[in-house]
């Protein structure tokens, strides 16, 4: 019987593990945290259907109760070696050794560190939060300013750390647009009296139902979308955030005082993704994500034989695409093992 080692227990790793195990393959799933789910653990509701993120998470976890899957929680691979027969041996942080016929990298993404965009004041101004912080606020059902008041005016800033050569990120993180729309709607539902602005460069509504949601946000939820990139933010004595932005559709400079500013942080390859790429000698794209062998026929393959990739370690993806990608990786691996 064949064995596959999966590194990373986020949605991609979990789904791939289940698919492989269902095909009768022995799976070792390594996850650095004490629970699986990865970044999904930080999310409240999912777009486009507003499903509770934890429902999906729970389902993915339940799938792992398969006899073919061995979970290694709280573990990190300290060393990966490949022998002449193409077998992999992975040493874990507790000293144990796993052996497998193929390796699936599912180490995912990390969100952009908003402090690197100092002009937006994250970590300096009290009422600047990231989209991740906001999800946490949603879970606690408390949208409050630092003083504990209800924010009367909220601004959501798109493309923080994405499509921004000033932080060396040229890529689009793809999901922030729709996340912004989703979060604006959620905010509106919780704070019917507040004014909500989205400051964007482009609205990229690529998925099914996304464009409809964007339209609804404008028509039904009265979210104001302003095309223009934030230039700078300052904090006033009341700890409100004063932003300067140009409305590029009207060609007019704007100055808006916000009670709460939300930064839609982009996605970058996680440290583990970069570390695994180094360890395995796999190529990185200029964006820092792992470069697939071919963008059409080989997006789960790498230049290294027996090393497969899935999920956001190769590019920003929404959950629909991530789960698809995991199934696709499982198919690739099964075929690879059968031909061995």
């Amino acid at each position: 019987m064949h064995t596959v080692i999966i590194i990373g227990g986020g949605p991609a790793g979990c789904e791939a593990a289940y698919q492989l195990a269902s095909d009768g393959i022995q799976v070792h799933l390594i996850e650095k945290n004490n629970e699986t789910g990865g970044n999904l653990n930080n999310w409240y509701q999912l777009f486009p259907d507003r499903k509770n993120a934890q429902d999906l998470n729970k389902r993915l976890q339940e799938q792992l109760n398969h006899p073919g899957i061995t979970l290694h929680l709280g573990m990190e691979p300290s060393r990966v070696e490949k022998d002449g027969q193409g077998r992999f041996s992975v040493s874990l942080s507790d000293g144990s050794l796993l052996e497998g016929d193929a390796l699936l990298v599912a180490t995912g993404f990390k969100t952009f560190d908003a402090k690197r965009k100092e002009e937006y004041g994250y970590g300096i101004y009290e009422n600047v939060v990231t989209s991740v912080d906001l999800e946490n606020m949603f879970r606690n059902h408390a949208i409050r300013t630092s003083k504990g008041d209800v924010p009367r005016r909220i601004g959501i800033i798109h493309c923080v750390g994405s499509r921004d050569e000033k932080v060396c990120n040229f890529h689009c993180s793809k999901l922030c647009c729709i996340t912004g729309v989703k979060q604006a709607i959620e905010l509106r539902e919780m704070l019917p009296e507040s004014e909500i602005f989205c400051f964007y460069m482009d609205m990229r509504m690529f998925g099914p139902g996304y464009e409809e949601m964007y339209r609804e946000a404008q028509e039904k939820y009265n979210i104001k979308f302003i095309r223009g990139r934030l230039s700078e933010a300052a904090e006033n004595r009341e700890h409100q955030v004063q932003v300067k932005v140009e409305d590029t559709l009207l060609g007019r400079p704007l100055r808006v005082t916000l009670d709460l500013m939300v930064l839609l942080v982009g996605m970058e390859a996680s440290n583990e993704t970069q570390g695994m790429a180094r360890e395995l000698g796999v190529k990185l794209a200029p964006s820092g994500f792992i470069l697939p062998l071919d963008p059409h026929y080989g997006n789960n393959l790498t230049g290294e034989k027996g090393v497969f990739i899935t999920g956001c370690c190769s590019a920003p993806m929404n959950l629909t695409d991530t789960l698809n990608d995991a199934r696709s990786a499982a198919v690739c691996i099964t075929r690879y093992l059968n031909m061995k």
């Binding site: 100092e118 002009e119 004041g121 300096i124 101004y125 700078e232 933010a233 300052a234 904090e235």
Partner: peptide, 9 residues
Amino acid sequence: SHLTPGIIR
């Protein structure tokens, strides 16, 4: 410096 509010602060 307005783009590096840490300095102003």
